[in-house]
Amino acid sequence: MKLLVYSAKNFEIPFLKRANKNNHKVTYLKEALDTDTAIKAVGFEAISIFSGDDASSIVLEKLWDMGVRHITIRSSGHNNISLKTAKSFGFKVANAPDYSPHAIAEHALALLLALNRKIVLADTQVHQYNFLQDDLMGFNLHGKTVGIIGTGRIGSIMAKIMHGFGCKILAHDLEPDYDLIELCDVTYTALDNVCNQSDIISLHIPLSYDNYYLINKNKLALMKQGTILINTARGAVVETDALIDALENKHLGGYCTDVYEKEKGIFFKDNSKDGIKDERLKKLLSYPNVLLTPHQAFVTKEALERIAEITFDNIDSWAEGKIGKNELGLELVNS
């Protein structure tokens, strides 16, 4: 099968090449999929896209007309593709679930520790030969109440990690994990209770219609003064304007994030020469209690290896005329 890989990053290409095992003819493209670059898929039966690519209805229509029939997503989240449109055309779509939940949960913890213990500031100071400790005070995680919103693959690991630190765990999820209740003494409760009782809140939910701006002005107002919010899910789970207000008013103690609401056109590229025009992002980056990384939580050797394996498992299944285990939207076909 001829496969075009959009948004191919230099660091992931070796993993993809190894996973392919020369079974398929693959072309790697640095550009993201959008209305302009869709034309590059002419002659390809399958494409692979990343979470920042645009697979909206208009793009899908172009791809279908060009002969593309299979789309494999190199991420667990798939809010960037219109599944209903894809299935109405007849596309086969699959994602890469469960590629390495540990990578994401560990990154969430790294963000929390770095922000709380002022690691970035301390590193900057000592490189300037400033060894004072005046502005480096943090707090112990032990004994704090941590709210986990979403206890699926990633959230459950985050709960176990924080339990290991000696934290009390509150959780909110539509489907409680009873193993977490037994193993980590997790207490499931309403979202409002998680917001107003937690010292630290970590988000581990997909972006959906119901979860869009889940953390909004009202939910932020419920949080304790000084709460630290962690977001390694999707940027639009948090309402950016309300977040900025909470930081500006010093109600929120800090924001650790690997994602941003308007990543498109900014993330996954070097903007150091031309800068950025997004004033809200500039504002967020101006706060000393905001720590933002460029959607890098998945960038571990283990995660990249697994994503590559799943990507070509999906392609292999389609090439053999099988329904892949990661195929999305089958319920839309049968409804």
Rank of each mutant, 00 (worst) to 15 (best):
M1G: 14
Y6Q: 03
S7A: 15
A8Q: 06
E12S: 05
I13C: 07
F15E: 03
K17Q: 15
R18P: 00
N22S: 15
K25G: 05
A32I: 00
L33A: 10
T35W: 00
I39F: 06
A41H: 02
V42K: 12
I47T: 04
I47L: 09
D53T: 05
S56M: 01
S56T: 08
L60R: 05
L60F: 09
L60Y: 08
G67P: 02
G77Y: 03
S82E: 12
L83E: 10
L83K: 04
F89Q: 01
G90H: 01
V93I: 13
V93G: 09
N95W: 04
Y99T: 05
P101E: 04
H107L: 12
A108D: 10
L111V: 06
A114N: 11
R117D: 11
L121D: 14
L121T: 14
D123P: 01
D123T: 12
T124C: 03
T124Y: 08
Q125M: 15
V126R: 05
V126L: 14
Y129I: 02
Y129E: 14
N130W: 01
L136V: 00
H142L: 02
I149P: 05
G150Q: 03
T151P: 14
K160R: 15
H163R: 09
G164N: 11
G164D: 11
F165D: 12
C167G: 11
H172T: 13
L174S: 13
P176Q: 01
Y178G: 01
I181L: 07
C184H: 08
D185R: 07
T187V: 14
T187C: 10
L191W: 02
Q197F: 01
S198N: 09
S198P: 12
P206Q: 06
Y209P: 01
Y209M: 05
K224I: 09
N231R: 06
G235D: 09
L243H: 05
D245G: 01
A246T: 10
L247H: 07
N249K: 11
G254H: 07
V259Y: 04
E261Q: 13
G265K: 02
I266G: 13
F268A: 11
K277D: 14
D278W: 01
K282C: 10
K283F: 07
L284V: 11
P288I: 00
P288W: 00
L292D: 10
A297R: 03
A297F: 07
A297E: 08
F298G: 09
V299N: 13
T300V: 03
T300P: 10
K301T: 11
K301I: 10
E302M: 04
T311F: 02
I315F: 15
N326T: 11
E327Y: 05
L332G: 12
N334M: 11
